[in-house]
Design a binder for these strands. Structure first.
Lengths: 196, 196, 196, 196
DNA sequence: GATGAATGAGCGTTCATTCAT
DNA sequence: CATGAATGAACGCTCATTCAT
């Protein structure tokens, strides 16, 4: 079997083990056995346990970003694009539960893990931040980094909502998307309205 | 020294170690040494490493809940109470960085840790949920568990905002509180406004 | 059992294993089992395999040096002292075969092993070097480092002779001592005699 | 490329790796890569790592012996022959540093390595032994195996001197040869002179 | 003949946990 | 009550060695 295929197959299996057991409790022995390869293959391909984990979160994170970036809406309006991105995000959660859980359900606070996940979060938050700032001063009277903070709050709301969804599978993806979309719109609309 | 005091001292030290190194990387050796007790004492008092960790997150979570519950506002309005609670929440983050980091900065996805933190989150979300429902049908047209989902989204937003704050210590607590308050109010105001 | 005694006991056993199998082929498992302790004890006491090995060569080297330094002769003449030292040296080889083999029979060329053994050899060679130079210019017409080189040659001769002795146990210690003494004296007497 | 040439090339490379890293630390991967062949080739040609190492020390030892045997002096006197052999010996050290280091700088005490190097040493010592005995009873009053022991001492002196030389490259080959020659002559002259 | 792919077996090391005192 | 001493069990990692092609 060619190396590239094997690597992908190993990553699939490793993601499942990492998602279930967490980084530390996952053992290379178990991953190797589950993947149907020997341990030395894991090391030949990924160098170390850390390397394997990083390869997995990079692949999963890359796919999530790709989905967000390549989301296309029916019309070109900003809100339609936002809706399309939210749908892509939730599709990722739905289809790649392992990837989601590893990326956002387990925060391994050691570097370079935390750094990689944090970088991903920053990228998403940055995109939201630009959406806020493109909204023409919706948050007047707040200090400069407010939009950054708000963006992170929205990212956290989305993560939390996705995790809530995993515990409530009877709710459909579109319903969750609608809720998240409403939350984001409400927040993007700015605080003034809350006091109107 | 009475046992109760010893236990509290040990928990203080253990929290610091857990916050810095994470659950898995923290070693009982290090905790025992830092606390100035012998390892058998740790086991006599807490039974196991897991028991020690659970004791710590229970104490920290209990204190956070206590603060939220006992928050009192100048006047009796719901919004004043919300504001007071947000301030309490951020005070906890500020004063008990270790506790906060262990509770919400490091998610150990293994049971029974995840369960305990999730239960804490549920309690806070439940309170928010009641606030939403007390808000007189602000989210009409959404399926029944919507308010629960929204509550979790707001909790996640708060967690994320607090973690963002830890990375931006130049921002004052009141500024963060203002932002979070605005976000919560905007969301509680319901989705209709976003389309007004 | 107190720690100090255990350490010595472990070193005794480890020396035997290192002498028989060599550094690389010796396994910590085997040493632990032979010493009747568990592997974690080895690490608690010596830190690592390298640490254990270093501790052993330091103890063995130190004892050899002690013997050489504290050798006392019947009368105070230089030749009597030399003879006493040679006897001490061969007694060490006889009584501490393991130590001898580890020190001089297996050269592990990796640092810091090589450095430690080389330092021991240097100390012995330095003493011999001083004997040569105290011999009042016995090696005239040779370049400056000659006495250093000759000293190393004599050390090598002694090592080789000792190893030869280990293969010829029927020869007595005093006979070997006599031979080595004669060799050293012949060389110390200087090259001129050879051409006399 | 014919097999014979390939083998020689591989041995050249392997010698360099063995000399630098030592037997145990040298990896077949590194040797294969450095030699530009695949690992299965190494095994096809030499059977095993041990086989490769043995092949190398046999080739190096054979070349050293060849040089010693074929050394020719200007005149036919024993001392001129001795001098020529010493020169050949040191030329080998100078020109084949790898071979020298593998043969005498790293003593792998495990069989069958030690045996092979010991056999080489025996052959050289045997030649010296015959020189001693041809010297007409220079060592009277010493037990029968004395000349054998002395021969080994001289071999050890030569090894040690050569290793010393490697650490003092500023000394010329002829100077070292002169020293070694003087040492050998002094010893061959017998012990009686020392007491003259 | 030659190699990319694969592995069995073992090693050094760690750590939560428990006696004997 | 308190601890110094000790360990069982497992883990990450490596390497000489061998097939299948």
């Amino acid at each position: 079997m060619p190396r590239e295929r094997r690597e992908q197959q190993i990553l699939d299996v490793a993601g499942g083990v990492f998602a279930r057991a967490g980084y530390h409790s996952a053992s290379m022995d178990e991953i190797a056995e589950s993947a149907g390869v020997s341990k030395p293959m894991l090391y030949a391909y990924f160098g170390s346990k850390e390397g394997l984990y990083l390869a997995y979160i990079k692949r999963a994170g890359g796919e999530l970003l790709d989905r967000l970036v390549s989301a296309r809406a029916g019309d070109a309006s900003a809100s339609a694009l936002l809706r399309a991105r939210i749908t892509e995000f939730l599709s990722f959660v739905e289809e790649h539960g392992d990837g989601w859980r590893v990326l956002f359900g387990e925060v391994v606070s050691t570097r370079p893990f935390a750094e990689n996940v944090a970088a991903l979060r920053e990228q998403i938050a940055g995109a939201i931040c630009r959406m806020i700032e493109a909204g023409a001063g919706s948050w007047p009277g707040y200090p400069p980094p407010a939009s950054d903070a708000i963006a992170h709050a929205l990212v956290g709301a989305g993560e939390s909502l996705a995790n809530w969804w995993l515990d409530h599978p009877e709710v459909t993806r579109d319903e969750v998307a609608g809720l998240y979309y409403a939350v984001v719109q409400a927040v993007l609309a700015g605080p003034s309205r809350a006091f109107a």
